[in-house]
Design a protein around this nucleic acid. Structure first.
Lengths: 213, 213
DNA sequence: CGAGTAATTATGCAAGCGTATAATTGAACG
DNA sequence: CGTTCAATTATACGCTTGCATAATTACTCG
């Protein structure tokens, strides 16, 4: 007589956790952290809300896990395409990949916006952000140093760090714009702009290696 | 025996509305639209929640009013400093103002993030956004056209529009970065970067007129 | 194939949400 | 100085929220 109880399949912890994280991210991208309610997340992951508590002691815990996973995925995705024979070619490829799908993506901007204020007010989220951000910037800085060395230029460590920060800012900024206003740019336009801008900052011409994709 | 009722002062509609809008904006900057609850807004504006209903038929109405006011204020603020003898000087001043306080401001980024998803999902908010965005870009495009004419360059209307979009993107992107990571840049560093980047896009040197402030 | 147990569902609770409406009161006016 | 009325407060309602806990059920293992 209690036959109206919902049927279910047992799954491994990792699979369930990942499904919950995925549902959380897609909801945060649309509605922000506050809009990603426990009930909505459960529905999207096709489980009932009680199960969330079984894997994450609190909503905050789930949000933190989702943020960590997302930030790592973004960094990996960006560096995935950064290949080439010369350092200059690798830098150009990295820079172009940063402003090209799938890295540039309206949903990713929604996530960025949805997380921003939450990160600002939460020490543990800040830690994740700082770690990911510095990791990216350090790798970018190393690549820039290599490019300048390749080009036979003198490299002061402090100056190199400042160049990396500036390039990172331009890349991030254009990434945001590209995702926020996808219709504002023609195919490849953002790539041209970012290559020009980073080239201008570093004082070298990146356009000659760009015709690789 | 009912003496514990809260004392209050009657105020003009405009003043009260503005106070409510200000409270709304500061809360959205911190907590997003969902986090800016009617009760919290009322508390910050030092009134009781019922009064909000008296001036705005719905929370959505208040949020829309706040968004409109904020967007207009941002545009005005940016163009306020764009003065100079030559068009080139005005462009340089505008570009620098865009990445300098008070236009660049962590709270403004919080607002941007807080509003983003809400704008995406609300037609009336989208309309306000489009109007403000195109207004800004049109003024920027006119200024760029003037600069190129001043420089004796041929100006195709379509090309000019694309240049404006690109410059706008760089400006917006750096504006976002400057506000999101205020400690990442030294004094004037963002100004240098944006002047270089916009100069690179337009194919001219803006740095020579920059030493004006 | 039957028992055990971890995964999952179901239900409940206190607090907070936006909105509606009734009750008060500050200030302008004759 | 009493009247009047819009500005303001107070209260309440139905719904949603995050979290807790009890009841079930799908697999595993002997």
């Amino acid at each position: 007589m209690t036959g109206d109880r919902r049927k279910f399949r047992r799954e491994g912890a990792d699979q369930r956790k990942e499904a919950l994280v995925r549902a959380t991210l897609s909801l945060i991208a649309e509605e922000g952290v506050r809009g990603a309610t426990v009930r909505a997340i459960a529905e999207r992951a096709e489980v009932t809300q009680g199960l969330i508590r079984h894997y994450f002691s609190t909503k905050e815990e789930l949000v933190l896990a989702a943020y960590t996973q997302h930030m790592n995925a973004m960094t990996d995705q960006t560096f995935a395409g950064a290949e080439g024979a010369t350092a200059k070619a690798r830098l150009a490829a990295l820079v172009v990949a940063s402003v090209t799908p799938p890295v540039v993506d309206p949903a990713a901007i929604g996530l960025w916006a949805g997380f921003l204020n939450h990160v600002r007010q939460n020490a543990r989220m800040q830690e994740v952000h700082a770690r990911t951000y510095h990791d990216f910037r350090d790798r970018l800085e190393a690549l820039i140093a290599e490019v300048l060395r390749e080009d036979g230029r003198a490299i002061d460590a402090g100056a190199c760090r400042r160049l990396a920060i500036a390039c990172n800012a331009v890349i991030d900024g254009l990434w945001l714009e590209g995702g926020a206003l996808p219709e504002a740019f023609e195919e490849g336009e953002l790539a041209t702009i970012v290559v020009q801008s980073v080239g201008a900052i570093l004082g070298l011409n990146l356009t000659d290696v760009e015709a690789r994709q």
